[in-house]
Design a protein around this nucleic acid. Structure first.
Ligand SMILES: [Zn+2]
Ligand SMILES: [Zn+2]
Length: 740
DNA sequence: AGCACGCCGACT
DNA sequence: GTCGGCGTGCTC
């Protein structure tokens, strides 16, 4: 009976005519880009290998899916037939699938979603890979003679070996000529896949110092999987270690993957690699044009690109001959995806290197506590680079107590004096304030009313230039009010300082010196950042004002003074990672001062000069500070001494949030009682309301990762299957980096 | 996630 | 009388 049904439904959903012998014989399981953690089964006339994309009907629309299983047995019901097979062969190898499956399971994400975030947009939309492959051509007969000058030029060009179209065009060959030669069969298409892209050094590398040499030797002489933590202060030459390790990797005929923070993928960064290696380098970055991005992605997948440089999502690029992974500035938060499924590209880099049996290098001047702990317990091998390049000494650091000093727009006399003398010496100064906009509040002089964001619990920030009140936590923007809505007074004060105001005041105080502001408002892309920094790189005296954007690994050769205006907010620890983040930020900012041969000076303005964190951070190297923080984490059983997960929920009504989190809390009650799991919460998120939605969270800790994982798997299942109220959003973040 | 179906207010 | 609001429910 059941069998009969199946056959009937098969022929019903099949477009094939009666009498034809080959019915849709193949049942395949397909992963689809929908937030459903199961595969969908379809019928296909011809065999399709797992790993190929297919176009399928899915509840009256069409989706692009990826075959994950052939010859699978469906559970029940009617099966639809696929519309089209897109890939003749799988676009990635088994190792890549291992990574995708691991990611889906570890971060509790549907496989289809993981694949989606791995593919560039156009490939997600079902465009064939061939669109993004260059056509190559070769001679059919080396002794071939052509008729005209045009044709002969083409044949001569090809005599040195196969070429792609762009090269022929450079050799002044026209499309028409090539077409004619193809028709005459004097030239044929050449299958360049499988050919190895040549690669050579274009510059003679600088001699590494003793520490660098030791690091390079250790990494290049290792075999199989190994992980390295390069802990090197700013300017200690981590890059040279990367470059030498890449050189070794390329010499073995393999490909190297380099991950960099979002803001660091600039032409200058790329220059460092292209200046050393003459080979095909793929760049994977969201800022790139879609077509170009696909070309690079495909060239990585084809094994043609020898170096792949990209941001977070580049960790998912197929790289068949992967021989090395570098994660630069490994502590950077942009490696952790904040929306969708919460993966960490840095953590996945370790997993991927393990699969590929190759080395992985994590580099940072301020390594994350996770990585330091891993090094401590021997999982990573630690390489320290302590020498400051050019032999420059560490900067002098001075605390300025703002309670004792008068200030002009947030700047103490000490700061202004230091800036003056810095500029007088012909050097550059950097003013760091981690708050963009003009002022963080707009307040009525008479009644004390403050302009608050209607959609959350924070004040509006004044943006002077655009005459707007902007909420930095929601999407709310309003025009600046000039009258208090409470008492109708027109005396409204802009209280406090942001980058825009500091910039304005510095221009007034130092009219003859250019002041450059670097924050999200002036600098939206890495490209723009590079443009804005052009002037700084010229070396003429100037003042840089900016947010943490300035702290991220940029080289300012002539900055000798760093003034830090608002470190205090980072000292009021809201979550257990705050001291780590503050320490990293301050260390990175201080590292901007005094590179090369110029001595540096750092001035930190604070109202908490005796704060223990500040004291220990400024009196000793970051690594000592970090080990103190680690000891504290250990004492409290916090990560990395336990595994953590965070359940977030939000809804317009608090009650619904509470209900969801309580459900989760009760579900785990048993495990908590048995000591398998620890819960903290439910509690409001640090920003308890955002965009008009109430936000709550529930923390989970476990001493064993696999215990946490199975608990979260079960919780995920529970919440997925619970009929939760509409509009309730929830997510489980494994290894959360940020409680917001 | 989409995109349906499905029942109640203000429009031709 | 219809157009459309978004509340539940399903997708091989
Ligand atoms: Zn007022
Ligand atoms: Zn807001």
């Amino acid at each position: 009976m059941w069998l009969q049904m199946r056959i009937l439904t098969n022929s019903a959903t099949n477009t094939q005519s009666i009498g034809e012998t080959t019915l849709s014989a193949h049942t395949i399981a397909v992963a689809l880009p929908v937030p459903l953690k199961r595969n969908f089964h379809y019928l296909s006339d011809s065999a399709v290998s797992p790993g190929c994309r297919v176009r399928v009907p899915f509840s009256n629309r069409e989706l692009i899916g990826t075959v994950v299983e052939d010859n699978s047995t469906p559970h029940s019901g009617e099966l639809k037939a696929i519309i089209e097979i897109i890939d003749e062969a799988p676009f990635a190898n088994q190792r890549w699938w291992q990574l995708i499956n691991f990611t889906a399971s570890y971060y509790l994400a549907p496989i289809g979603e993981v694949i989606s975030s791995a593919l560039p947009k156009n490939l997600r939309d079902g465009r064939p890979l061939s669109n993004y492959r260059a056509d190559w051509f070769q001679l059919t007969d080396v002794n071939a003679v052509a008729k005209g000058v045009q044709q002969q030029r083409c044949l001569d060009a090809l005599r040195s070996g196969p070429m792609e179209w762009s090269q022929l065009r450079e050799a002044k060959v026209t499309r028409a000529t090539l077409k004619r030669l193809l028709e005459l069969e004097l030239v044929a298409e050449y299958d360049h896949l499988g050919a190895e892209t040549p690669c050579r050094l274009t510059q003679s590398p600088p001699e590494p110092n003793a520490e660098q040499l030791a690091a390079i030797t250790a990494i290049t002489q290792s075999t199989g999987f190994s992980s390295w933590l390069i802990d090197g202060i700013t300017g200690s030459g981590k890059t040279e270690v990367y470059l030498r390790s890449i050189e070794h990797c390329l010499a073995q005929g393999q490909q190297a993957l380099v991950l960099v923070p979002e803001i660091a993928l600039t032409p200058q960064t790329l220059e460092r690699f292209s200046a050393r290696f003459a080979t095909r380098i793929a760049v994977l970055h969201s800022g790139l044009a879609r077509g170009a991005r696909c070309e690079d992605w495909v060239s990585a997948a084809d094994g043609l690109a020898r170096i792949i440089i990209g941001t977070r999502s580049a960790i998912f690029a197929p790289i068949p001959k992967l021989g090395l992974i570098v994660v630069d500035e490994e502590h950077d938060l942009s490696y952790k995806q904040q929306d969708g499924f919460h993966y960490s590209a840095r953590d996945l880099a370790i997993v991927r290197a393990k699969h590929a049996q190759c080395p992985v290098i994590l580099g940072s001047a301020t390594p994350s506590l996770e990585s330091l702990a891993n090094a401590e317990r021997g999982a990573y091998q630690r390489l320290e680079l302590s020498a400051r390049a050019g032999g420059a000494s560490s900067p002098s650091v001075e605390l300025v107590d703002i309670r004792q000093a008068s200030r002009d727009t947030g700047l103490t006399m000490a700061a202004l004096d230091s800036i003056s003398s810095c500029l007088a010496r012909g050097e550059q100064a950097l003013v760091f304030i981690n708050r963009r906009g003009y002022s963080p509040a707009l307040m009525c002089q008479h009644c004390g009313w403050i302009a608050d964001c209607p959609a959350c619990t924070r004040h509006f920030t004044v943006h002077q230039r655009h005459q707007q009140l902007v909420c930095h936590h929601c999407d709310v923007v309003e025009p600046v009010t000039h009258r208090c809505p409470q008492c109708f007074s027109q005396q409204l004060d802009r209280v406090g300082e942001g980058t825009e105001r500091i910039e304005e005041r510095l221009i007034q105080l130092f009219p003859d010196t250019p002041t450059i502001r670097i924050d999200r408002d002036t600098t939206r892309s890495a490209q723009q950042l590079a443009e804005n920094l052009e002037l700084v790189n010229n070396g003429q005296p100037c003042i840089l004002v900016g947010t943490q954007m300035l702290a991220k690994g940029h080289h300012f050769e002539r900055v000798t003074l760093v003034v830090v205006l608002d470190i205090d907010s980072g000292l009021y620890a809201a979550d257990f990672r705050a001291p780590e983040r503050t320490g990293q930020l301050l260390t990175q900012v201080m590292g901007r001062a005094g590179r090369a041969e110029l001595a540096g000076q750092v001035l930190v303005q604070t109202s908490l000069p005796d704060h223990p964190l500040l004291q220990s951070l400024l009196s000793q190297p970051y690594r000592i500070y970090a080990s103190m923080l680690l000891a504290e984490r250990q004492r409290f059983g916090q990560p990395p001494f336990s595994a953590a997960a965070l359940l977030r929920a939000d809804h317009p009504h608090q009650h619904q949030v509470d209900q969801c989190l309580s459900l989760a809390r009760n579900f785990c009650a048993n495990a908590v009682q048995h000591g398998v799991l620890q819960c903290q919460g439910p509690m409001p998120a640090p920003l308890a309301m955002r965009n008009g939605r109430q936000r709550g969270q529930l923390w989970f800790f476990a001493s064993h990762r696999n215990k946490l994982h199975s608990a979260m798997q079960a919780l995920d299942e529970l919440l997925t299957n619970s009929k939760l109220v509409g509009g309730l959003r929830w997510s489980i973040d494994i290894d959360p980096q940020d409680s917001n």
